[in-house]
């Protein structure tokens, strides 16, 4: 259990392109996982709808207020568009991504307000269950996305204030502009993807019903 010193005085650093690529690959893998998560809700929706067991797809008058739905989906799409622009325009990235963050939070808040004015409860049939389950989990993950966007905003802010640092620690480049760039791109990729998922949810839950 003794400490073993590296035989060579200098440790060869790993290729600097690995970590940015990790982010690009990782975010696409996450997107795949996310898709399978929501596929479960899509399946539950269409399965229970086609089954309509006991004629209980909807019990009573069940129609979610579409005004909020439109508000949420517009906030999501605009937010995703802003973040995409931010990843494309380094000069104005900070205000753009801050706007994206604000809109993401607005979407979450709108969803919470909508729950208080639904006009039906989770027990009002299968549609009500799917609606609430799907939107609630979607909002939960949107909260994680909002955290992610926030880290990008904060990074951009600090980068603008303190400039580029590039210390090399333990043979690994710890901070690099390409890495920050890749981080923002990964975040915006995922957020655009997530907004698309939100749009699909909107179509299924509000338009098709």
């Amino acid at each position: 259990m003794e400490a073993s010193a590296p035989t060579h005085p200098r440790i060869e650093p790993e290729p600097p392109e690995w970590q940015p690529r990790n982010l690009r690959v990782g975010v696409r893998l996450l997107a795949g996982a996310e898709a399978f998560f929501f596929v479960s809700f899509v399946f539950a929706y269409f399965y229970l709808r086609s089954l309509d067991l006991n004629r209980s797809w909807k019990i009573g008058h069940v129609s979610p207020p579409i005004g909020y739905g439109i508000g949420i989906v517009v906030a999501l799409v605009v937010s995703a568009a802003l973040l995409w622009l931010a990843s494309r325009r380094p000069q104005t990235a900070l205000p753009l991504s801050a706007g994206a963050l604000a809109l993401a939070l607005a979407a979450i808040v709108l969803q919470c307000i909508q729950y208080t004015t639904l006009g039906f409860g989770p027990g009002n049939g299968a549609f009500a269950s799917v609606f609430i389950g799907w939107t609630a989990t979607y909002t939960l993950f949107a909260l994680f996305c909002a955290y992610w966007i926030e880290t990008q905003v904060a990074s951009l802010w600090r980068l603008g204030r303190e400039g580029v640092q590039r210390p090399v620690r333990e043979g690994v480049p710890t901070y690099d502009v390409p890495l920050a760039r890749a981080g923002l791109e990964a975040c915006s990729f995922f957020w655009i993807y997530y907004a698309v998922l939100g749009f699909i949810a909107f179509v299924i839950l509000y338009v098709v019903t």
Binding site: A44, N54, A136
Partner: peptide, 21 residues
């Protein structure tokens, strides 16, 4: 998550009396 919601906030994903299966 669906099962947990059935047990807490009264969704009915798996309750055949209320449209679940």
């Amino acid at each position: 998550m669906m099962a947990a919601m059935d047990r807490t906030v009264q969704t009915t994903f798996f309750d055949p009396g209320y449209g679940g299966s």
